[in-house]
Simulated assay, not measured.
Amino acid sequence: MTTIKEVAKLAGVAVSTASNAINGNYGVKKETKQKVIEAARKLNYVPNPIAQGLVNRNTGNISIIVSGPSSFNLFNNPVFFEVLRSITQTLNTAGYQAHLNIITTEDEETEIPRIARSRYTDAMILVGSRRNDIDLAQLLGDIDIPVLVVIRSSPSSGVYAVSSDHWNCGYKGTEYLIQLGHKEIAFLGALPGVSIADERLAGYREALEDHGLTYRDSLVIEGDFYQESGLTGIRHMLRQVLRKPTAIFAANDLMALGALEGMEQEGIRVPEDISIMGSDNIPNLHLLKVPLTTISTPFYEIGRLASEKIIGILEGKDDLPEKIVLPSELRVRESTKRMSS
């Protein structure tokens, strides 16, 4: 394989000059650049893209970081599949390579800076972190390549984001249950400091207040957006409260699935005893024994726009907003029921 040294020798210039000429850098005379290009053609010289990337910080690689708690299993969450599929398809079509990194929340402080400093990536897309907004903003603020978070809102200025309207999701889901006649509505998925949970909880609370219903802390259940927390959270709440809810809004479908399991263990029928709805519209909810009512989030579109945003930033032609927020839609199925008069 021909080297840049051989090209420089044939052109009668220094190696650095030959490299600058081939890479299109400033400071090389037109005549000299032409001599180098001619020499490269004669020798069939093909530039090494990795070496070029190390010099120019332009590798064509985008790091996708999927993060979750230590108990986290990527394969348990269909949302990640849809987002990752969309991101990789869009990047590959544009000539970029997607590099997947799966880490735990506990490792974010060391792994995210390490990946950013590796010089083998031009930008970073973060999926699924459960780190609170303040800590995440501090961590990502020290990264010197473009960083974009998906699904959750941006933790700070300078960090790009593509997400759905989480506040509206919480409001719309709660309002639908109110319209069915429910007055005692629980919220499953409180995760303080994490924007996706905080915003959905805020929407839930405002919907209650707008319809003259009382917000009760005893009906707000913690959850980490994984199925097990839905199971344990709902069982704990049902055994503690004196007035059981007639409906539950779960901040995502995985927790709703856990809650369905928990209510079955407690002998509670859905929707006869308690209505429940989720959020996200993950695949196959219509195949459940009781098909789940939910709020649909456009995850494929989120992944596509995230990739297009990063590509636009890297290529200097970005015309998308710094923070992109997409609407969601109600999907009514059989897990919710109108209250009897």
Rank of each mutant, 00 (worst) to 15 (best):
I274W: 11
V332F: 15
P321I: 02
S340L: 15
E108I: 11
V15Q: 02
I276F: 08
A39D: 04
E6K: 14
R304G: 14
D142A: 09
E199R: 05
D210L: 13
R239L: 14
G12C: 03
L231K: 13
Q34E: 11
I178W: 06
S164Y: 04
P298L: 09
G303Q: 01
R119Y: 09
E108F: 10
E106M: 06
N20R: 09
H99Q: 08
I87N: 08
I125N: 00
Y226C: 10
N20D: 05
G193V: 00
A137S: 04
G262D: 07
H286Y: 14
S67T: 11
E199F: 05
F225W: 07
K172I: 15
I125C: 01
N281Q: 14
G230R: 03
I324W: 12
A250M: 13
L242D: 12
E175I: 04
R269P: 05
G170E: 01
E209M: 05
E106Y: 05
G173Q: 07
G267S: 04
M255P: 03
R131P: 00
L314C: 03
S129D: 01
S154E: 00
L10A: 08
R304W: 12
I143M: 08
D122G: 06
R200V: 03
T17F: 11
I151W: 03
F187P: 00
E175T: 07
K5G: 10
H286V: 09
L180N: 04
D144M: 14
L126K: 08
I313Q: 13
V325P: 01
L292Q: 02
I310K: 02
K309C: 08
S154M: 00
P283Y: 11
L320M: 01
M237A: 07
D217N: 02
R216L: 05
I282S: 08
E199Y: 05
A186F: 02
H166M: 02
M339L: 12
S156N: 12
L180Q: 07
E82T: 15
G141F: 13
I134S: 05
I313L: 14
A137K: 01
G233S: 03
V36C: 03
G258F: 05
L292Y: 03
A51D: 02
V127W: 02
S63P: 13
Y120T: 08
Q227T: 14
Y96V: 05
L231E: 10
A186D: 00
P283D: 04
E108A: 07
T32C: 06
L140G: 06
N76L: 09
Q89R: 13
D165M: 08
N252Q: 12
L254C: 06
S164E: 11
Y171Q: 07
H166T: 00
D319M: 12
T121R: 01
R331W: 06
P47T: 06
E109N: 10
I103M: 15
L100G: 14
S156Y: 09
G95Q: 03
N284E: 07
K183V: 12
I268L: 14
D273Y: 06
H236K: 12
V79P: 02
A250E: 13
A161R: 00
E175W: 04
Q227Y: 07
Y215M: 03
A123M: 09
